[in-house]
């Protein structure tokens, strides 16, 4: 089974909010001192792919990213986790291409890599949180799509996907090829690579494609795509000032708290 896992490198979402700045001209976040990390749901996807391979006994896992030069680090990490191969489509255009542009590039790369059975993406990214890459990939690759999956089993040539819903979970039977987006669960926490595998990953060759190699509409994609545009990006001004309840005793403070809560709930 050929499994392609699409990864996105993002600004560390855990970087403190007080240091967060945006560039109003470019309409994107300023990196500042924040580090770059692989989006957590993409790491959950790699972990899910590795577990699927372990259950199947054999599979080839290819990590794929469309990103700037730094994004190679995310592929190296995937290789260190024991993905079998990695492909980097170099993004030398807009830093925040729209989801259809991303899906077009990934589709062309997946088709160039050859036959696939399963394409995994993260459910959404921790920066723009677009949440569309998997669904649009399914449309472009002309396959079915299942979202919010947290584990994959195989039975009788079919896949059995467990996916999270608003109030529980569902089991979905699926016949490959298909695209699946992965969400997090206690069972797909990304493994920590062994030191030896980290060293090995540095020496593993990475397949590199330029946009020209893929036969996509290079000009539109470099410009960020024609699906949607960011018209404005700003940091919301918070006009809330927290009023701490006061009082000489705990009793008085909690009494005040109760009154404040009742004021709000009665107005609802």
């Amino acid at each position: 089974m050929n499994i392609v896992v699409c990864l996105k490198q993002i600004l560390d979402p855990l970087a403190p909010a007080r240091e967060f700045r945006v560039d109003n001209e470019k309409k994107e976040a300023v990196r500042g001192a924040a580090s770059l990390v692989t989006n957590i749901f993409c790491e959950n996807a790699i972990e899910t792919a590795l577990q699927t391979k372990e259950k199947l006994g054999a599979a080839k896992i290819t990590a794929l990213t469309f990103g700037a030069a730094d994004a190679e680090d995310s592929l190296r990490k995937a290789l260190a986790m024991k993905a079998d191969a990695a492909t980097h489509v170099m993004n030398d255009g807009a830093t925040n291409p729209d989801p259809l542009a991303v899906a077009q590039v990934l589709t062309a790369a997946i088709q160039k890599l050859g036959a696939f059975d399963l394409v995994l993406t993260g459910r959404e990214s921790g920066d723009w949180g677009v949440g569309q890459t998997g669904a649009l990939l399914a449309e472009l690759l002309n396959t079915p799509y299942v979202g919010f999956v947290d584990s994959i089993e195989s039975a009788d040539g079919k896949l059995k996907l467990k996916r999270q819903t608003d109030n529980g979970f569902e089991l979905v039977e699926a016949t490959p090829p298909l695209v699946v987006s992965i969400t997090n669960d206690e069972h797909n926490v990304p493994r920590i690579p062994k030191t030896r595998d980290v060293m090995m990953s540095v020496r593993t060759p990475i397949t590199k494609f330029t946009l020209e190699d893929l036969g996509v509409d290079v000009a539109t994609i470099r410009a960020g795509g024609d699906y949607y545009a960011v018209a404005d990006l700003s940091i919301p001004v918070k006009d809330v000032q927290c009023e701490f309840v006061t009082g000489d005793s705990l009793e008085q403070k909690v009494e005040q708290l109760a009154q404040r809560i009742l004021e709000v709930t009665r107005a609802l």
């Binding site: 600004l11 967060f20 960011v230 990006l233």
Partner: peptide, 16 residues
């Protein structure tokens, strides 16, 4: 919509 984990708000213009 909220982006960057609620640290920023974006206005997205849908072109299609």
């Amino acid at each position: 919509r909220a982006v960057y984990g609620g640290k920023a708000v974006a206005t997205i213009a849908l072109k299609r």
